[in-house]
Design a protein around this nucleic acid. Structure first.
Lengths: 194, 194
DNA sequence: ACCCTTCGTAGACAGTGTCTACTCGCTCTG
DNA sequence: CAGAGCGAGTAGACACTGTCTACGAAGGGT
């Protein structure tokens, strides 16, 4: 493949940019093309379908989040428990900061499109990291995979429910921290001394 | 208001029916009208916009789930821990059985439309029930609202991640039960004797 | 009998995703 | 150097969508 498909990258960037200000419903193929300054048929050269373009944009969102995680882990304390906490808060904050992108990233039709395994595998490395951290942070009672998955699901649900205000409505909390803390304490025990 | 807006109910029923076989993307205004045997302008008499019709359909989904919960609680053991477990498994199973409906029910644009508080409050009674059960099932260490919210978020995330196969891909589990159990044990302690 | 309110129809309009035919530029080849 | 071939992007058509507006057909009240 050519080293720089300029338009291809530009379309993805424009889409991600558009997603920072507009709802994912506004991510029409034609609107992206318009903002990229090309005709509405141009994207077809790189993305056979609208969904595949959305999939590429979502993939860029996963990449962005992944970078943020590694950056945050660099400045986080070394012990696994602190690292898990860092990831947990970043997950929910990322979802709250990039609402539309988060929504797009986890749309099932977007997830299922794309490569062979689709986009689902984009979250696999992060999950493995979480599994390792859980195994290190916690006395091995049950399988760390199960605990890691349960934590992941809890974070995802917290991000989602918080994003559309259901948690705030139900508990009149002003930020999602208590729920994150409750989840981590429940699964990993109270925060121990260093 | 008249006692029976026949068409109004029929549109909602047809929509919910359509949702049992098709993806929520196929829930177009015109398709619903077609299947209801009326012209594409007819729904406008009852629902000013497409979104408001979707909102009504989602509301019927909440009502359906609510009925299932009360029915399941009738045959569940009396102790609060068992009731929580009943609700938890039902939540995830409902999401897996009625995928499209579940997806529609928790679309933020659908949630925000509708009445004054929107559709978010449709889940409030269930949440209060869960809070009471948590308060009764568990030694009062932290606020039961926080624990109940954390459990709800965990269930929701489990349902969602399970529905599109991410959990299965990450842990190659064949059903979501282990994650539900892990969540309940983490938050409420191991299952006690009867 | 007449009006007039209610419910539904039918057509227009802008916008969308997809498909196809086409027109530029460029490079590679004879 | 001339010309064929090809890649990239344009432009128009098609079916479909949601919304809006004008219209028609029953039916009941005075």
């Amino acid at each position: 493949m050519p080293p720089d498909d300029a338009l291809r990258d530009r379309l993805v960037r424009v889409g991600a940019e558009l997603l920072r200000t507009e709802s994912p419903g506004s991510l029409s193929l034609r609107e992206i093309a318009r903002r990229a300054g090309v005709s509405h048929g141009a994207p077809r050269r790189y993305f056979p379908t609208h969904l595949s373009l959305l999939s590429a944009i979502a993939r860029s969102g996963f990449a962005d989040f992944s970078e943020q995680v590694t950056a945050a882990l660099r400045v986080s304390p070394e012990d696994p428990r602190s690292k898990i906490k860092t990831i947990a808060f970043l997950y929910v904050r990322f979802a709250a900061t990039n609402r539309s992108m988060f929504e797009l990233m986890f749309r099932h039709d977007v997830l299922s499109s794309g490569g062979e395994l689709g986009l689902r595998d984009a979250s696999l490395p992060l999950f493995r990291l979480l599994t390792d951290l859980v195994a290190a942070a916690r006395p091995a009672r049950t399988a760390p995979q199960v605990t890691a998955a349960a934590i992941w699901a809890a974070l995802h649900g917290t991000a989602q429910l918080w994003n559309w205000g259901s948690l705030a409505l139900a508990t009149d909390a002003t930020d999602p921290s208590p729920f994150i803390d409750a989840t981590l304490i429940a699964h990993l025990g109270p925060e121990g001394p260093p």
